[in-house]
Simulated scan of single mutants.
Amino acid sequence: LVRFAKENRIDLTVVGPDDPLAAGIVDLFAAEKLRAFGPTKSAARIEASKIFAKELMRAQKIPTAEANTFSDSNEAVRYCERAKFPVVIKADGLALGKGVTIAGDPTTARSTIDEMMNQGRFGDAGRRIVIEKFLSGTECSLHALVDGNNYLLLEPARDHKRALDGDNGPNTGGMGAFSPADNWNSKLQAQFEKQIMARGNQFSRTSLSRVDNYQRRPPCAGV
């Protein structure tokens, strides 16, 4: 890609997929003095690792669902035996938007943990997992253009993640989206900017937050 960009005198490369961002394509282009739109490898960890994102939100005091992380499947199963259901089980790494399961009972939780951690359904991406408190609410995605010091929020959007009518199927990675989101308003935006964006941002180029309207404040489901 670097050779192609040089040979064809590409002025700007816009990186869409998560995997090359996580692998450091923006860093590679920058080292060759080529312009690329996207986060660096370090910044892309907020998307590439659910555990890192959760730790970041906790450290920055960004409201987020209660969660525990596991690298041992037996410990994860034991945790679920005393958990309040439903729970949300997430593969730590990138899984094309399909690495999240809402487990409504211990049986589903055990099978999901086994598939991710023991059977390798998502490869290394599922060797570690996050088990999170289920938040009931409507989701909204917010994108921001950032340069490390300043940010510009784009219009909020909502996507359709789960298959089948009534959201009874598995997560699909997204089946379309619409914008502006009908569950967003100026009060929530002011709260979002105060709780999340105003805390500082070293993640240049782009930032994405998924926020659930839950109770009176919007916890961040992902950064």
Score class of each variant (00 low, 15 high):
L1P: 15
L1G: 13
V2N: 00
V2Y: 00
V2L: 05
R3E: 09
R3K: 10
F4L: 15
K6I: 13
E7L: 12
V14A: 09
V15C: 02
G16D: 06
P17A: 03
D18Q: 12
D19M: 04
A22K: 05
A22T: 08
A23T: 08
G24A: 02
I25D: 15
V26F: 07
F29R: 04
A30M: 05
A31C: 10
A31N: 09
A31P: 05
E32C: 09
L34M: 08
L34I: 10
R35Y: 08
A36T: 02
I46V: 12
I46E: 13
K50S: 04
I51G: 06
F52Y: 14
F52D: 15
A53Q: 08
L56Y: 13
A59K: 12
Q60M: 08
P63N: 07
P63W: 02
T64E: 14
A65D: 03
A65W: 00
A65H: 00
E66C: 07
S73F: 12
S73Q: 02
E75I: 04
E75V: 05
R78Q: 10
C80H: 05
C80Y: 02
E81K: 11
R82V: 10
R82Q: 15
F85G: 08
V87H: 02
V87S: 05
V88G: 01
I89M: 11
G93H: 04
G93W: 02
G93N: 05
G93Y: 01
L96A: 12
G97H: 04
K98C: 02
A103F: 02
G104Y: 12
P106W: 00
P106R: 00
T107R: 10
S111M: 14
S111C: 12
T112N: 08
I113A: 09
D114W: 11
D114Q: 04
M116I: 08
M117E: 06
G120N: 01
G123P: 06
G123Y: 01
G126E: 01
R128W: 05
L135F: 10
L135I: 07
S136K: 09
E139V: 04
S141F: 13
L145S: 03
D147P: 13
D147K: 02
N149S: 12
N150T: 11
Y151H: 06
P156T: 00
A157R: 09
H160L: 06
H160D: 13
H160W: 07
K161C: 06
K161W: 01
R162H: 04
A163I: 05
D167H: 04
D167Q: 02
N168S: 12
P170F: 00
N171P: 06
N171W: 03
G173A: 00
G174A: 01
G176N: 09
A177S: 15
A177G: 14
F178M: 11
A181V: 01
D182W: 03
N185V: 02
K187G: 11
K187N: 12
Q189N: 06
Q189A: 03
A190I: 01
A190L: 07
A190S: 15
Q191G: 15
K194M: 03
I196V: 14
I196H: 11
I196G: 02
I196Q: 05
G200Y: 02
N201A: 04
F203N: 03
S204H: 13
R205P: 15
R205T: 11
T206D: 07
V211S: 10
D212W: 10
N213E: 10
Y214C: 11
Q215L: 11
Q215M: 10
Q215K: 14
R217D: 14
A221V: 10
